[in-house]
Design a protein around this nucleic acid. Structure first.
Length: 547
RNA sequence: GCCCCUAUAGCUCAACGGAUAGAGCAAUGGUUUUCUAAACCAUAGAUGAGGGUUCGAUUCCUUCUGGGGGCGCCA
């Protein structure tokens, strides 16, 4: 990654200058390198000089100039990467990548193929991402879509970045819990919670079995199992999300893990009785008040079972745990973090919140009342690709206002087609290769085909170079997203890449009588195809050959 | 009352503390005898209000106003 090279180069230069006494000793700040918006500001730029003014006691321009000279003098392979570096106005150092380097990158991408962009920053760290985890009281609704697509994509990104990822779904299905009892009531005809057409047909279907059961918890559990089956089926087949672990809350009870953790907490003197209930001293661990873990009725609360669940995750050896919850669980975060502290968890526990989706007009969706728009309905209506893109372009913090009619209308104009079209255009050119005596097999997977740098040197057009610059950003996108979880960066990048390609397509004809140039450009579009497909793959969107 | 999220173009959304705030849709005008016009090009249009920190703020702090969520022995 060239961005990495720039960072290293700056850091080394500063260190060397400190050694020589040109700069005083100080702690070197985190070097930031970014993509300037304006082309005249170079391909990459750094603000390091401005950050160091106080430590170095020179003007930013002076510092930048010293650094600039240093890059060119020291053995930084400067010539290999850049054709120039400039120091400008407030104190930016702007880097201009050399054509030669860019041209070679096309060959690199073709060599690495789908592995292009794979990083090692994850160091194989065992990572657990838990998402969706919808209560088995009904089908998934449009609110669940957020965590679903986000979690899946984030998992893809982290895998690409070198983490060892397990995708997990937690099923709140114990018959001790109130929502399962509520469900049971409905099953037994004693209540109307969660009732909708779907549930009615499910209950009808299980009629004979349910009739034999009197217990609400048991009836609810039975029904929940059926619902869960449907949901798992839907998630796998329709949403194309593959979970590694379906973790049943029931398991915690069966293996008396709840009891064990309760006893353990008690031994630690973290539990006390008050008003017939038992409380956990969460206040000592950063929560504004203590929390009930055993109710008056003697049943454990959600918090206790969640602590037990997380203990299980910790024991499975995950050093990075990401929970993706709905906004209504926001208040639960400090409690769970306190739980992790109590258990002495040393890894990273990141709890992400997906902001709610409201229906146009301000109506809130209540699952208990059976008022839902199912995800299935949406996917059916506007296709999986459009649905995924629709959700993923927004940051988790955005409160989406949902309007099915608007979604339908927007689906026809969804930018996902713009990106897919770029891919289809490439495929179309490749199909026509044969007519120009360039059998495409030569360019694919076949190792016989040699990528000659002499041919890639023909890629000199402004649009060609811009496209390559966009291509080599791919690993950076992975790195940034693996660090800050801002998954919307990926569809954004996909659009940028498609734009670059469409502009290239406008300016540069691929298939022509000039064989060498044709070959060079075929290489370029193959590299583009690889990166486009890779990018779409990260967000779970298909890359069609024809449209 | 306390806690969390949020306010950006007519609409839906972007923008590691950086340079002239970006896209898409909608609007207006233009581009095809050449690899798919689901494309390209051009024009117009925005940071809720006030303070502060900084060389530099949409971004950080603070006050105000508006929107949403949570403050259960529900999950």
């Amino acid at each position: 990654m060239i961005r990495e090279e720039i960072k290293k180069m700056i850091e080394k230069s500063i260190k060397e200058l400190q050694k020589k006494g040109v700069f005083p000793k100080f702690k070197i700040p985190e070097i930031s390198v970014e993509h300037p918006e304006e082309e005249i500001h170079g391909d990459y730029a750094s603000n390091t000089a401005m950050q160091m003014t106080k430590s170095v006691k020179k003007t930013p321009i002076e510092i930048a100039k010293i650094l600039k000279d240093k890059f060119q003098v020291s053995g930084f392979r400067f010539q290999e990467f850049f054709e120039g570096v400039e120091v400008v106005k407030p104190g930016f150092i702007n880097f201009f990548i050399s054509e030669d380097y860019l041209q070679k990158q096309v060959g690199e991408i073709l060599k690495e193929k789908e592995k292009f962009g794979e990083l090692k920053i994850g160091k194989g760290i065992k990572t657990n991402i838990e998402f969706i985890s919808a209560n088995p009281t009904g089908p998934l609704h449009i609110g669940n879509g957020r965590g679903a697509f986000f979690g899946d994509s984030l998992a893809n990104v982290l895998e690409k970045a070198g983490f060892k990822v397990v995708r997990e779904y937690y099923i709140n299905n114990t018959k001790e819990s109130s929502q399962i009892k509520e469900l049971g009531k409905t099953a037994l005809g004693k209540g109307k919670s969660y009732l909708n057409d779907y549930l009615k047909s499910k209950i009808q279907h299980l009629k004979s079995k349910i009739r034999k059961i009197k217990d609400e918890g048991k009836a609810g559990y039975l029904l929940a199992q059926e619902i869960q089956k449907d949901n798992e089926n839907f998630i796998g087949k329709k949403l194309k999300i593959k979970f590694d672990v379906w973790f049943s809350e029931n398991k915690l009870y069966k293996k008396s893990k709840i009891k064990k953790i309760y006893n353990w907490l008690k031994r630690k003197n973290l539990v006390y009785k008050k008003e017939e209930a038992e409380w956990l001293r969460t206040k000592k661990f950063g929560v504004s008040k203590n929390e009930v873990i055993i109710r008056q009725s003697g049943e454990p609360t959600y918090l206790l079972s969640d602590i037990a669940y997380h203990k299980d995750k910790f024991e499975r050896g995950f050093l990075k745990i990401i929970d993706i919850w709905g906004a209504d669980h926001q208040g639960h975060i400090p409690k769970m973090k306190a739980g992790a502290k109590i258990l002495g968890y040393k890894g990273d526990l990141d709890i992400l919140i997906t902001q709610i989706i409201r229906l146009k007009g301000g109506k809130k969706l209540s699952k208990r009342k059976g008022e839902i728009i199912t995800l299935e309905e949406l996917v059916k209506e506007i296709s999986l690709d459009v649905t995924r893109f629709f959700y993923l372009t927004k940051s988790l913090n955005t409160q989406m206002e949902f309007d099915l009619d608007l979604a339908k209308e927007k689906s026809e104009k969804n930018p996902v087609y713009y990106v897919q079209y770029a891919h289809a255009r490439i495929c179309s050119i490749l199909r026509k290769c044969g007519n120009f005596q360039f059998p495409i097999s030569n360019f694919q997977i076949n190792s016989k085909f040699q990528i000659l740098n002499s041919k890639l040197r023909l890629l000199k057009h402004q649009s060609e170079l811009s496209l390559i610059k966009e291509l080599i950003r791919f690993p950076e996108i992975i790195e940034d997203t693996a660090e800050d979880y801002q998954v919307q960066r990926i569809p954004q990048y996909a659009i940028d890449l498609a734009t670059s390609f469409h502009q290239f397509y406008r300016d540069c004809r691929v298939l022509s009588k000039d064989k060498k140039l044709t070959e060079a450009r075929l290489n370029l579009i193959l590299a583009t195809k690889i990166v486009l497909k890779n990018t779409l793959g990260l967000i779970g969107i298909s890359a069609p050959e024809k449209m």
